[in-house]
């Protein structure tokens, strides 16, 4: 019988076998290293990336863009969502814009942001921001409209006023919805930052990626993809710890 607790061992073994086969095929000359570099050369590229201090500059650029965009996107998304849910006129004006932004793949705005804001940090922040803000807006906007009426009545019949409603019902509800989407928007923030750098930049992981492409260096490219995956996974882990902590009542 399969013990579900040992699943990770089987997964690890499968990965090791795959990598070994891949490496063996490469060494035997069955794979063209220009298209499919061996795991050992990808590892080599990764080690080389971290041997100098330059990688930290790029990491810092990407992290800054993603996290600033994430923070701004969450704050602006919440504010707009709350205002739209409470003021019908604002909802009328905002909803079509948001629907449009939601319908298109928002990364197509990257070249526009480069023209408006230059190739520096600002255009990457803007892209991460717009990716995050739209999701948060809809989460909060629909969430507030669907807030549990029974909770509202309960607070009112217990003698709570508007500020009590805000503090005990609306604020915790909004927090729960935002946290429920935290992983999604963290992923979006990094997508925004990396794609923005890929389009035009002088630093960042996305910039390194486009550099690897233009110099036809597949080992570096795969090393970078791996690095970005690990980085986002670590952030995911932090996000779900935060989620568990703040939603421990669930």
């Amino acid at each position: 019988m399969l013990n579900p607790k040992r699943a990770w061992i089987r997964q690890l073994v499968a990965l090791a076998i795959l990598l070994a086969l891949w490496e063996a095929a490469g060494r035997a000359g069955h794979l063209n290293p220009l298209y499919m570099p061996m795991p050992s050369s990808i590892w080599g590229a990764l080690v080389e990336l971290f041997s100098g201090s330059r990688i930290w500059i790029h990491m810092e650029a990407t992290f800054t863009a993603a996290l600033v965009g994430l923070a701004l996107g969450i704050v602006v998304g919440i504010v707009l969502g709350v205002v739209a849910a409470l003021v019908p006129v604002i909802a009328e004006l905002l909803e079509p814009v948001m629907l449009l932004l939601n319908a298109v793949p928002r990364v197509i705005l990257a070249p526009l942001f480069v023209i408006w804001l230059g190739i520096g940090l600002a255009s990457k922040v803007a892209l991460a921001f717009i990716l995050v803000a739209v999701v948060i807006f809809f989460t909060v906007f629909t969430g507030i409209r669907q807030v549990d009426r029974r909770l509202v009545e309960r607070i009112v019949t217990l003698g709570g006023d508007r500020s009590a409603l805000l503090r005990h019902v609306y604020l915790p509800s909004v927090t729960a919805w935002v946290l429920g989407n935290l992983k999604v928007v963290v992923g979006f923030a990094f997508t925004g930052a990396v794609v923005g750098e890929f389009v035009a930049a002088s630093r960042g992981l996305g910039y390194l990626l486009s550099f690897a492409q233009s110099t036809f260096n597949p080992a570096l490219m795969m090393a970078l993809v791996l690095l970005i995956m690990v980085v986002v996974l670590v952030i995911f882990g932090l996000a779900s710890r935060l989620e568990k902590r703040l939603l421990r009542w669930n």
Partner: peptide
């Protein structure tokens, strides 16, 4: 303020402990 109300589908605040829920109205007072 002296009228208490209890409905069938009364909901407690899910994000507050039982004690906090009971203390809620007292705080409002």
């Amino acid at each position: 303020a002296d009228v208490g109300i209890l409905f069938q589908d009364d909901a407690l605040l899910p994000w507050r402990t039982a004690r906090d829920n009971v203390a809620l109205g007292l705080g409002f007072r």
